[in-house]
């Protein structure tokens, strides 16, 4: 049917943009189309992509989470405090820092579903609280010095290969999320809530529970992102993750997720994240000012959203 083509157009358009970018940059910059650079790009995308993965779930429900960047900083600092400053085992640090991130997400979810706060406002508050806590706990200091075994997560390669562990982690997470969103009740319900919250509720879906879950996952993914980031840089900084939420949201939107909810895919978001990183990477390689990078990324977001709104308009006709 003609309609089916329209539905998939969004995902395809981001893929087309990606391919066009790769061809263009490959022609313009010899260093771009190399295996090493490809690995670099995937390595640089892990942080944004894992973060976007969580935010995407929230966006599917028609919500938004702008607290994730700050939560990355907070859970990183918690990790540093526990492992480096308090000298407790790595395992304890990882579990507690993930719990802190999860808690931030649960808190967002409860505020939004039970107390009916607008997602933007609730997560804005969380953004400020988490950032403030991170700065306070850290006392403004960077915390470094982690065990080698942990740094492996952000710096090591899968043994015997040149494939970084963080890339494997990222791809594994994407496969798991793809499975959940496509083959699990959770995924169906999340899309349903984003598509029509009232109809979902009247169909017997516990909307509040699933919304809280969505925000919790977003928080948890911020925690995972934080682990990768700390391991990559061997340091946790209270100013880490500044404005990362914007990159994450942009990834989702470029990848075809609608901020109205109910639309988009896990793989679309992956492509969106790669597009953002590729633009930065390519312009870096060509030695073009990063101020211009911002402009270009803004432009791509705009085009993606325009495509989204055209699709919606067609749908209404």
């Amino acid at each position: 049917m003609a309609t089916k083509k329209k539905i998939n157009f969004g995902d395809k358009s981001s893929l087309i943009v990606l391919i066009a970018l790769i061809i263009l940059l490959g022609l313009l910059e010899p260093a771009f189309a190399t295996v090493n650079n490809a690995i670099n790009i995937l390595q640089q995308v892990t942080v944004v992509a894992i973060l976007a993965l969580g935010v995407n779930i929230v966006i599917f429900t028609g919500g938004i989470d702008i607290s994730v960047g700050a939560v990355v900083a907070l859970s990183g600092i918690v990790l540093g405090k526990i492992v480096v400053d308090a000298g407790l085992p790595m395992f304890v640090g990882i579990v507690l820092s993930l719990l802190v991130a999860l808690f931030c997400g649960v808190f967002n979810g409860v505020m939004i579903s039970k107390f009916k706060l607008q997602p933007m406002i609730a997560t804005l508050a969380m953004q400020s609280m988490a950032r403030g806590l991170a700065l306070t706990i850290a006392g403004g200091k960077t915390i470094s010095g982690y065990p080698e075994s942990f740094l492996y997560l952000g710096q090591g390669n899968v043994f015997g290969t040149k494939i970084p562990v963080q890339i494997v982690l990222m791809i594994a997470l994407f496969i798991i999320f793809h499975f959940i969103m496509r083959y699990r009740k959770f995924g169906r319900y999340i899309y349903a809530i984003g598509g029509n919250e009232e109809a979902s509720r009247l169909s017997g879906i516990n909307v509040d529970r699933y919304k809280i879950l969505a925000y919790s996952i977003s928080g948890l993914m911020a925690g995972v992102t934080s682990l990768v980031l700390v391991a990559k840089l061997n340091s946790a900084q209270p100013v880490a993750g500044l404005e990362y939420e914007m990159d994450a949201i942009a990834s989702c939107v470029i990848g075809g997720s609608s901020l109205l909810g109910g639309q988009g895919s896990v793989w679309g978001t992956f492509i969106g994240a790669i597009i953002i990183v590729i633009i930065r990477n390519g312009l870096n390689l060509m030695g073009i000012s990063s101020n211009l990078q911002k402009f270009v990324i803004g432009l791509v977001i705009l085009l993606a959203v325009l495509a989204d709104s055209f699709r919606n308009r067609k749908k209404l006709q």
Binding site: R184, K185, R188, Y191, A192, G195, N196, S200, S203
Partner: peptide, 26 residues
């Protein structure tokens, strides 16, 4: 009543997804 963006099939399943799950997947 409906999630208009969902297909007919997806709309029908929404009230009883549990019945479709085998081996942890729909």
């Amino acid at each position: 009543g409906l999630i208009l963006d969902f297909s007919i099939s997806e709309n029908i399943s929404i009230t009883n997804i549990d019945a479709l799950i085998s081996n942890f997947k729909i």
